[in-house]
Amino acid sequence: MISFFIKRLLLLIPVFLAVSMVIFMIVHLVPGDPIDNLVQINSTPEQKAALAAKYGLDKPLYQQYAIWLGKALSGDLGDAIILRRPVVDLIALNLPHSLALGALALAFSTVVGIGAGALAAIYKDSLIDRTTMTLILLGSTVPGFWLGLLLIMLFAVQLGWFPVSGARSWDALVLPVLTVGLGGVALVARVTRVAMMETARKDFVMMLHAKGVPPWQIELRHVLRHALLPVVTILSLRIGWILGGAVTVEFVFARPGLGSLLITSLNQRDYPVVQGSLLMLAIAVMLGTLLGDVVQAAMDPRVRERIK
């Protein structure tokens, strides 16, 4: 298991290099020059060149990449051009908010999604199944920002249970977690339901019935356990998405976070911040996949066998 973990970790190195290169290049392919945003109107070309030299923007691209990657690996992502602070500080300021929102939303979608999917599968074609699946269809088609607004109207404005926006107290997290989490609930529930129904058709399930095992035990100890394997895959893919993709929800609730940091700096063409936050997101996606692989190997002996 440990050798598997190390092997997977080493495999991430080339992926990381490729991703970092793409992140570095994308920013340079976007039109617009950050120096234009920095200098005053009517500055001379000399003044512009001086600024470009100060930030190293006059060097060839490959040199810029090497310098950037070298520094990034030693924990220095440079200084923000517009915000004039170290990028690492900006990320350190925003990341905890993203992590809290992401982790809670992921936990919420996992627990509620698996529960709803399992109920729908066990009571297949009944009223429970149809109701759950209708709600889930609704949940998966409503965009996050709109759902967020609806939740604010109901729970914050009408009922006054939670703050409308901000991140000052714990209860400000409830509505954003619900908004981000509900989308995940829909996904997880659908995957759980289909996987359980597929597993229920397997020969070994018939054998369990032939052994006289009570149906609830068959569903929970055997069928659900198999159905969790694809759910783990889906969840691990969602980790990166939740960290960075919650940006619209962050805007709706006026919350700080990696997503908002990325969008704001993208609008301002603040290269170092864009690169830094993209890199963080990429690392999150990679670690999410790694986590998914490890959990899957822990759950399925056949996966462990394949690794050897």
Partner: peptide, 24 residues
């Protein structure tokens, strides 16, 4: 029926490859 199955009447199935739960 469940108290009969496995306890008093047991089944040996056709295909042993698929009759056992693969992750247990």
């Amino acid at each position: 029926l469940r108290h009969l199955r496995g306890k008093r009447i047991a089944l040996i199935s056709q295909n042993p490859m698929t009759s056992l739960d693969p992750i247990i």
